[in-house]
Each structure stands twice: as structure tokens, then as C-alpha cells.
Design a binder for these strands. Structure first.
Lengths: 297, 297
DNA sequence: CGTTACTATCTTTTTTTGAGATAGCCTGAC
DNA sequence: GTCAGGCTATCTCAAAAAAAGATAGTAACG
């Protein structure tokens, strides 16, 4: 059974004419006869009443319902990839907590305005988990800290973050090694790339990464920092966005530790759905606009 | 886009291997490659990730959902016609009020027991309307009084009915012409073949069919007869089935007027769905069992 | 009774498909 | 690091199928 045959069959059923159906679908009448005959042979039933008026038989009418389902699904699938202008379908994005909270909202808003027919799904997690999700096909693209090693990814530097040390009291200089040793550090759960920076920071001050508490959400973490539970390391933008809600203070870190690039990563563009391709476009536009501001600051 | 290609695509997506997919669908690997490549060309997207593991891309995963819908609809359509043993789908029957009330129930019960997966729909109406429904494709088969003229029908004598005169008082002989002239006759709405019998009966007694009231339902009609509103003519079996509920009495009519055959009519068997074919079988069996009883009585 | 329009059938040409063989590539083991 | 094994892409040839045209037969209409 071929979709082409079903298309012809539906045209005959609707127009009541083999010739008209042939013209509608840009072919000749003998082919319509042949296709319908083949359908009838396959199903072992006469589908079209030829004697007198040309109309679907009982069996034909029964087939119509299924043919409609098949052809509708087919048309939708095609419009998913070949629909002009407006993309549709689904876009699954993986991103870090910090990215999701601060960087993504304006981009998603712009994207949704441009492509209102796309369903957007966000999954958050640390970089390592996100990479797994992408590899596993559970998301279409991810925002991760640092370049991915695999060569078969499409990478785009999306955001440049500056990490700052976050604590509950005002800081002008780096806390002493003693202070660092006795303090707790708060980080996202295993796999968060910022966590590596914390360890790097501690190591540069000759302190072993001892007490690191893991958190699942940004709010919880900042709340605990504000409560004096310890320090954490976060992008400056993220902290600024939350600073009015928590009594927290920041300290600049040396650029070797502070600078973190967030990359947009997906497989090759040839594998992208139009929804994803359009998102990449939106992102590129947003980055171009953002970049000068970042370097200027 | 061909269903065959989608089948292969789904097999590749599920098994993660071109070779395995080829074996599953009894073909060779080069054909799988060709089909998927053609799909990818048509949609302008890479559907399968070949580098490293073979797995569907984002676009491939999006297609999977539509492919499933198409293939499911296809499978259901095929099983509609080629499903072994159990028929499925829908069976739309047209029948007269009297047939529906008395003759059909046991047959439908037997049919439903044999084919539980078939949805049964009954439309009732007078013979002329039923013929229209059948011609119009709104029902798959009908039970009508008398043979249909059109030659391209499949006919089966389903039931032999004996019409009786029904009135509110006990009768031993035919009411007088005077009585008939002053009485009303109750019949189904225009198109009911029994109505012709009433006119035939009146004509045979030299009375013009004057006052004929039309009813839409059997119950209403019998209720009015019982209330002394007038006479009607109905199959004996129908009356007997309702006699305990209404105070009505019957009189045998001359066989030339009394005998009415109810025929099962549908288009040629080649146009039948399995559900309809199975129903015809059930009906044939029921008729064979019933017939001796009818002739014996 | 003839005309017209429609479908079935036959034939030819073109296209597509299926299968086999082979080359290249990646993976995993030693 | 190298080699073997398995996997996919590509090429080729044969077979099958589809498309298009021509023709004949048939039902509807005037």
C-alpha cells in the first residue's frame, strides 16, 4: 500500500471521477485505474463502485477514515521539515541552572515570538549531565560551560560569564587560607563545571577542597550563602539578578579562574529540525547584540 | 515518502543498525541505506546519525512520532480487511421499525458474540428511505420489504412475514366496508411498504384509502390502535411481541395481501468489508434455522 | 439512435527498486 | 599501535513497477 495510491483513492472518492482525480494529482487516468486496482487487489475488496456513478463502496468508505489518518500524518510530517517560514513541532533545550535563570529567558521570549508554533521544553542540569542528555537524544541542543571535546558537534560561543566569589559579608580581598579552610563551599550537584572552578580556586590558595555541599537549585544555594553557611562561585550576572533578594556580597576573582564561556552545542546543522535551526538563528542574533556590551563592561 | 521507507527507518531507529533492520524486514542493507537516504533527501534533513553509534538525530526523533501514526493507521487499515478470524471496524445496518424490533435482536446478538470488535450502528426507516441510505453509502446493508429492482444488489430472503389486521377489539371477520370507511388507518411515515398493503387491503374491499395517519414509531402506533384510534396492518410476529403490552387484537388477512418477504440487501459481496461479510454469514445461518419453523407454523 | 464522456485494457517507455559485490571506516581487542 | 571484525556507502546489473499514450468498450444524455 502506497501513500500515492491512497491520495489517488481519496481524490476519486471525493470527486467521483477517475479523470478528475488524475488531473488533480497531475497524472493520467490509466494510472488512477491501476493504483486503485492495486489497492483493491491488496485488500481483496472492491473499493470503488464503477457501475453507474463512481463512488466508494462500503469497504471504500471504511478505508477513507484510515487513509485520512495516514495522509494527515504524512502532511504534518512534511510540513515539519518543509513548512515555509513558520517552524512547528518541538524544541528540547538542555541548560545549566544559571543559564536557564538569567540568560535564556530573553532568548526564549524572542524565539517564541518568532516561532509561536514550537513547543519548548527545558531540562536543567550540570554540564556533564547535559552532555549525556544530548548524546542520548533526549534534548536537541544544550548550553554548557566550556567547549565540548567531541568533534562532531556544532559549537557556538553563546555567553561569556565572569565568575565571582559569593559570600554573606562584604569582601574587598580574598578570604584568608584559614578562612577558606574552615568555610564550607556550596555548589551544584556532581557534574557542574562551576564546581571545578571552586576546586581550582581553593587549590590556588593552597587549600584542599574539603567541605563542598551540593545543591539542586540556585535559590536554595543562594539562600544558604546569605545565611552564612559558606561561599560559592557563580556567574556575576546570575548573582546580580538575585542580589536584591538575598543579602549576599561578591568578590572578583582572577580572570584565569573567573572567565567561563557558555557554549551552545548541538549536532551538525544537517540534523537539525527547522525549529532547532530557527533557534540557532535567534541565538546568533542575540549573541551578536550582547557581545559588545560584554566586552565593553 | 513511502510507507516502506518509514518502516525501514523505524527499524533502524529502534535497532540502531542498518543490517539488523534489513534482516527484520527481509531485505538487504544497501536497500536500507538507499531508502533512508531518499527520505533524508526528500525532507532535507539528516535523520540517522551514522558516525559512531547509529541513532536517530533530533530530526529523526521528530519524524518517528509521525511515522508511528502513519504506520499504525496503515496496520489498522490492513487488519480491517485482512485480519484473520475476527472482523473489526464498523457495520451500519438499515432496517424497518418492525424488523428492528422483532427480527434483528437475536441476529445482532449472535453477530456480536461472533464479532465483538465490530461497532454496530442501526438506522431505522421505511423501505424507500432505506434504499436511499444504501445507495447513498450511509449504510452497508438494509432489510427491506420486497425485492429491490436494481440488478446490482445482492439479495437474500431474510424473513417471511404474515401481515395481520390490528385493531382494538376482537375480530373474527373482516370489518365491514362501512366500518373501514369510517375508521382511521395508522401507518409508518411515507415510504413504508406496509402502507401499500393497507391501501391494497382497502381497495380490495372497495374502499378508498382516505384517512391514513402517519407515525414514526411502532410503540406510538400500537398505543393509538389500542386506544381505539383505528386499525393498522403489521407483521404477526411484531404484534405478538407487543401484544402483552397493549390491548390489541388481530385478524388474519388473505395470503395475497398478508405475505410479505423481508430481504437483506447490499451491494455485491466483492464490495463488502469483512464485518459485513461476517454479518451476511450470521444472517444466512439464522435464516436456515428459522425457515423450517416459519413453514411449519 | 447517435453523441459524448468515462473507465478498462493494452503497449511502450521510463523510472524505480532490489540484490549482490566491493570499498572504506569505525570499533574493540590484543 | 596494529589488526581483525563488523558496519555502512557506493556502484552495478537485473528485475519490477510506474507513467503515459492509444484504443476499445460502455453507460448516460439528448
Amino acid at each position: 500500500m502506497q501513500l500515492k495510491s491512497l491520495r489517488l483513492f481519496m481524490a476519486v472518492a471525493e470527486t467521483g471521477s477517475f479523470v478528475t482525480a488524475a488531473n488533480q494529482l497531475h497524472t493520467v487516468q490509466s494510472n488512477v485505474t491501476a493504483h486503485i486496482k492495486k489497492l483493491e487487489d491488496e485488500l481483496g475488496v472492491q473499493l470503488i463502485q464503477r457501475a453507474g456513478r463512481v463512488r466508494p463502496t462500503s469497504a471504500g468508505l471504511a478505508l477513507v477514515e484510515y487513509a485520512e489518518r495516514m495522509l494527515t500524518a504524512h502532511d504534518e510530517a512534511v510540513s515539519l521539515f518543509k513548512g515555509q517560514e513558520k517552524a512547528c513541532g518541538r524544541l528540547r533545550i538542555g541548560a545549566m541552572e544559571t543559564t536557564t535563570a538569567v540568560r535564556l529567558p530573553p532568548i526564549l521570549a524572542a524565539y517564541h515570538a518568532a516561532q509561536p508554533d514550537v513547543d519548548i521544553q527545558i531540562k536543567t542540569g550540570p554540564t556533564a549531565e547535559l552532555v549525556e542528555l544530548l548524546l542520548d537524544g533526549q534534548v536537541d541542543c544544550v548550553f554548557v560551560a566550556g567547549r565540548l571535546e567531541h568533534s562532531r558537534y556544532h559549537l557556538l560561543k553563546a555567553f561569556s560569564e565572569q565568575l565571582v566569589l559569593v559570600g554573606s559579608t562584604p569582601m574587598t580581598t580574598m578570604p584568608s587560607s584559614q578562612e577558606l579552610l574552615t568555610s564550607a563551599f556550596l555548589a551544584f550537584r556532581q557534574g557542574c563545571s562551576y564546581r571545578q572552578r571552586i576546586e581550582l580556586l581553593l587549590a590556588s590558595h593552597g587549600v584542599n577542597a574539603g567541605r563542598i555541599f551540593e545543591f539542586g537549585s540556585l535559590d536554595a544555594m543562594l539562600g544558604c550563602v546569605a545565611a552564612g553557611m559558606g561561599y560559592t562561585v557563580l556567574p556575576r550576572g546570575t548573582v546580580e539578578a538575585h542580589q536584591h533578594r538575598f543579602g549576599i556580597h561578591t568578590l572578583e576573582l582572577p580572570s584565569s579562574i573567573a572567565n567561563v564561556d557558555t557554549y551552545f552545542a548541538a549536532f551538525e546543522p544537517e540534523t537539525w529540525t527547522p525549529a532547532l535551526a530557527s533557534f540557532a538563528d535567534t541565538l546568533r542574533d542575540a549573541v551578536v547584540v550582547d557581545e559588545p556590551q560584554l566586552t565593553a563592561s
